[in-house]
């Protein structure tokens, strides 16, 4: 019951945002950014809702959501661990770091741990190449990460 209340509130928030746009044409990506900010991810129902409100086919919404890496259709964990796999990080050993996260968390890239605590993903360049290899947990940047540091980084967010 509580959950549906919450969802209703979120839909209202999104609706308000869409209604506030002076022009609806061409604003699909902006609306999806907002929707993901509100819901955390973009499930089918939310995509249908957006399609209806903007008067575009649901297929177009789905096409856009799947095209851009920033949008995700699965809920994310409480914390997102992003290992930078940009070129600068790659040549300085980011792959080893990513492997270590995978083995310690027991998940692959783009997966979430069973307890819903962590989502692991690889991203392309946060532009902090001076600190390569770089790992971002939520919005915090960790620089010059080594295989040995992985355990401590995870520990910071556990418990």
């Amino acid at each position: 019951m509580e959950e549906t209340e919450l969802a209703k509130e979120k839909y209202e928030q999104l609706e308000k945002f869409i209604d506030s746009l002076p022009e609806k044409e061409g604003e699909l990506i902006k609306v999806l950014h907002k929707a993901q900010e509100i819901f955390g991810y973009l499930p089918k129902e939310v995509q249908h809702f957006v399609a209806k409100k903007l008067g575009v086919p649901a297929a177009k919404v789905y096409g856009v959501v799947t095209f851009y890496s920033f949008f995700n259709m699965e809920p994310k964990g409480e914390h997102t661990i992003s290992v930078c796999m940009g070129t600068a990080c790659y040549v300085r050993g980011a792959e080893t770091v990513l492997e270590e996260f995978k083995s310690q968390l027991g998940i692959e890239c783009n997966q979430t741990t069973k307890d819903g605590k962590f989502t692991l993903d690889a991203l392309r360049c946060v532009g902090a190449c001076g600190l390569a290899p770089v790992v971002m947990v939520d919005s915090k940047v960790y620089g010059r990460v080594t295989k040995e540091m992985v355990k401590d980084i995870i520990a910071e967010y556990e418990g």
Partner: peptide, 8 residues
């Protein structure tokens, strides 16, 4: 839209 990984 600086997409080239390694350019900042």
């Amino acid at each position: 839209d600086e997409g080239d990984p390694g350019a900042f």
